[in-house]
Simulated scan of single mutants.
Amino acid sequence: MQIEYRVNTPVTPQEFTRLLNDSFLGERRPVDDPECMAGMIENANLVVSAWDKDRLVGISRCVTDFHYACYLSDLAVHREYQKAGIGRQLQALTQQQLGPRCKLILIAAPAAQHYYEPLGYEHNDRCWVLDRDKPIR
């Protein structure tokens, strides 16, 4: 298996949606909302992708200022390609695109809670989430 990694190569909303469905992340993303999925991939400003020939098999989708904070919004690897180091390489290549003081920040899916600590991430319990249907009081 020869995996090619690409930085900011366009990924179609259909490819992105298919990958999320073929990973475990599709259960936690709005894959049934094509407009939202298109906006998610088209408005990310750092995308590192993994390809097996012309098949998207992994993605690191981020929103970042490149200097202080990089929110790794989606890290997904196709189920058939997991445990081959693709996720680790996607994160390493993502980090290489960032300035020396820039932090990678993410919210782990419950099933991936223990994946990140061995990679060097520190757990932070100060994350807060406000759903769009709940107005600021």
Rank of each mutant, 00 (worst) to 15 (best):
S60P: 08
L19A: 11
V77Q: 05
K53E: 11
T17F: 05
Y81A: 06
V31Q: 03
A44M: 06
E117K: 07
Q89A: 02
S60W: 02
I107G: 01
A112D: 15
I41G: 05
R29E: 11
A111T: 13
L20N: 02
A84H: 02
L106Y: 07
K103R: 14
E42A: 12
L19K: 00
A44F: 01
A108Y: 12
G99V: 12
V47M: 00
P100H: 05
N21D: 12
T17W: 06
V47W: 01
V57A: 08
D52N: 15
V48R: 04
E35W: 10
K53V: 11
E42G: 11
E35D: 15
A111M: 09
Y116K: 08
L75V: 10
V31C: 13
Y81M: 04
F16P: 04
Y115D: 03
L90Q: 10
K53P: 02
A38D: 06
D32L: 00
S49K: 10
G87L: 00
L25Q: 09
C102V: 04
T64V: 13
Y71E: 12
N21M: 15
S23V: 13
L25K: 01
Q89V: 03
Q96H: 09
H114S: 14
D33Q: 12
Q89H: 02
E42T: 08
V77E: 04
L98D: 08
S23F: 11
M40K: 07
E42H: 10
Q97P: 11
R79M: 05
Q89I: 02
I41R: 03
S49Y: 05
N45R: 14
F66G: 07
S73D: 10
I105S: 08
A69Q: 07
G26I: 14
I105W: 10
Y115S: 11
L72H: 00
R29L: 12
R18L: 12
T17S: 12
T94Y: 10
G99F: 12
T17V: 04
Q95V: 01
Y115W: 08
K53S: 03
H67C: 08
P110Q: 03
Y71I: 03
I59H: 02
R88M: 00
G99R: 15
L72I: 02
G99M: 09
T94S: 14
I59M: 13
A76P: 01
E27S: 15
Q113H: 14
H114F: 00
A111W: 07
Q95T: 03
E27I: 14
L56H: 04
D32E: 05
K83C: 13
R88E: 03
N45L: 00
T17P: 01
G39Q: 14
V57Q: 09
R55H: 07
Q91K: 13
N21L: 15
G99N: 13
G39P: 12
M40P: 02
E80W: 03
R61Y: 01
V31G: 05
P34G: 03
A44T: 08
V77I: 06
Q113I: 14
L56I: 04
A109W: 06
H67K: 11
D32Y: 02
V77G: 00
D32R: 01
I107W: 13
C62W: 02
D65E: 09
A84E: 09
K53I: 12
Q91W: 02
G39N: 15
A111H: 13
D65Y: 01
S60L: 08
L46A: 03
Y68C: 01
H67W: 03
V31W: 05
A92I: 12
R101F: 09
A92V: 11
A112P: 04
Q97E: 06
E15R: 10
L75Y: 00
